[in-house]
Design a protein around this nucleic acid. Structure first.
Length: 496
RNA sequence: GGCGACAUAGCCAAGUGGUAAGGCUGAGGUCUGCAAAAUCUCUAUCCCCGGUCCGAUUCCGGGUGUCGCCUCCA
């Protein structure tokens, strides 16, 4: 049983899919006027985990995410860049996909664009006109009339009379009501325009998401998501126009899920305020999987402050988990090549015949807790904490095994493989260990050969107990940015 | 002016009507030739004031503070 916080009802609800065994999701995508920043990325990572989880527990997932590629800001950007709206859009979509790939975000089923959904958009506006929910001005603009819809404001929980329309921006006096919003904007000189029954022009914001979700998911679908700043006016308007066009108060999204903002210095990160960090730039400093873990270590509805120091903490934490991942892989390799059971147990050190039984029991228990956490409004922060708990015992087991404190039996191999499976199941829902960062800044054949030579010389010195030489090599490599680790599996090196 | 969210250790962050997960950092120990990595141990009565309750950090009321939406914004 999954519980979800629904913005519409302002409380957690038990999730009941419209169609048994299937889940349909519409997540508001980006307006393609700029390179995405980390705040933009949050909902996509969050929804990526949600849909992975649904898939994992057996749902067939339908996931749609739009690109708004026709919009004032894109036209403005094109003018500034002396380019076209199409070029600006294409460029930013490319950046979007590169960023998402780095963050292990799986592709949506469809990425509809405004420019490719024009017929459906126009047809929906036409319906609203015919039903009397919209009106056209002489200049060709078409507006949605909020007063015609008594339930307008139900998502954001506000009433028309309570809002200070025009508090910070001048109201267009030609509108019937200050809160009326544009469905269609009449064409201006030199701007992209499409033909329509209301004249040449382009869609206003909001209408595209209504038209696209209707086109790809139908009149009713399960989830609609996005950042909390979309609640009003974007989602409010989507609901109004969709339900009026469809003619059913219960149509459109059944559950509204909104994520909290990213902040910097505790202030909301926003495109207009300019206090944002693009994903592209962050990826130059931190591997995608670490960025992803960072975003998921806080519950999606909480605000999240972004800072390099906080990212560094996540880097350390990520490496802990990665160590377990590597340990499990090493054990799996040993199991495969038959060196696991033989081991090199030392009776004088041995503390137990086997601990694998306890480990596998812990893993199963933590997996169950992990699922409980995910079922409770997708609490990834809690879920991840169980990975750390499992990680600790995996690492202990591995160290004991290497130290010869454990004499594994045949059945233990089976159990360790099960532990690995559980750990990887968790990882695959959180979406890590799919694109492990290479900590070697230069990983060429030549560098590896040179490093092997250096390491071999140092090993000779160590065998001769010539610690001065051995330490000098290690210290000077460290000064050069290379860290040597003498591990029981041999010497490892990586960049600092 | 209207509406809303949040306030938990040095930092980040879950959570519960019966004295509080996890991560980072710090101190000490194990391991190591020494390190590193790993691991173990140690650090909170949950913003303030009332109320309900046998008992509240968790529920209710008030206060203070921070942030957000009401304009484009994920």
């Amino acid at each position: 049983m999954i519980q979800v916080y629904n913005t519409m009802t302002k409380r957690k609800e038990i999730f009941k899919p419209l169609k048994k065994g299937e889940v349909s999701i519409y997540c508001c995508g980006i307006t393609t006027n700029k390179a995405i920043h980390i705040g933009n990325a949050r909902p996509f990572v969050v929804w990526d985990v949600i849909r992975r989880y649904f898939a994992k527990i057996g749902y067939k997932v339908h996931y749609i995410q739009n690109f708004t590629d026709v919009d004032d800001k894109i036209i403005t950007a094109a003018k500034i860049e002396n380019s076209t709206w199409k070029e600006v859009s294409t460029k930013n979509i490319d950046i979007y996909f590169k960023s998402m790939d780095a963050l292990n975000v799986r592709r949506a089923d469809v990425y509809p664009k405004v420019s490719e959904t024009m017929d459906e958009i126009i047809s929906m506006i036409d319906t609203l006109m015919k039903k009397g929910y919209a009106y056209r001005l002489d200049n060709g603009d078409v507006y949605y009339s909020v007063e015609k819809n008594p339930s307008y404001g139900k998502l954001s929980g506000r009433k028309l009379e309570e809002m200070q329309a025009g508090a910070r921006i001048e109201v267009d006096g030609r509108k019937n009501h200050p809160m009326d919003f544009a469905l269609w904007k009449a064409a201006k000189e030199g701007e992209p325009a499409w033909d329509s029954p209301f004249g040449k022009g382009r869609p206003g914001w909001h209408i595209e998401c209504s038209a696209m979700s209707l086109k790809y998911l139908g009149e009713k679908f399960d989830f609609h998501g996005g950042g909390a700043d979309l609640i009003f006016p974007h989602h409010e308007n989507e609901i109004a126009q969709s339900q009026c066009a469809i003619g059913d108060e219960n149509s459109f999204a059944q559950y509204w899920v909104h994520n909290g903002f990213l902040t910097t210095d505790n202030q909301k990160m926003s495109s207009s305020a300019g206090n944002f960090f693009t994903v592209e730039d962050i990826l130059k400093k931190f591997p995608g999987e670490i960025v992803r873990l960072f975003l998921l270590q806080t519950h999606y509805r909480s605000p999240l402050d972004f800072a390099d120091t906080l990212m560094e903490n996540t880097r350390t934490a990520y490496n802990r988990l990665k160590t377990s991942y590597e340990y499990l892989n090493d054990l799996a390799k040993k199991i495969e090549n038959g060196t696991f059971v033989k081991g090199k147990s030392d009776k004088s050190k041995m503390i137990t015949v086997s601990q694998a039984g306890g480990l596998v029991e812990l893993a199963e228990r933590l997996m169950s807790s992990f699922e409980d956490a995910m079922n409770d409004d997708f609490n990834t922060a809690l879920a991840i904490s169980y990975m750390f708990e499992l990680s600790r015992d995996i690492n202990t087991y591995y160290n004991d095994f290497l130290a010869g404190k454990i004499a594994p039996r045949g059945t233990d191999a089976f159990m360790i493989m099960r532990v690995r499976e559980v750990f990887m199941d968790m990882a695959s829902i959180i979406g890590i260990f799919e694109n492990i960062p290479n900590e070697k800044a230069v990983d060429s054949e030549l560098v590896n050969k040179l490093m092997n030579i250096i390491i071999s010389i140092r090993q000779d010195a160590r065998s001769a107990k010539n610690w001065a030489v051995a330490d000098k090599i290690r210290d000077e490599l460290k000064a050069a940015g290379i860290i040597l680790e003498d591990t029981p599996q041999g010497v490892k090196w990586k960049n600092a």
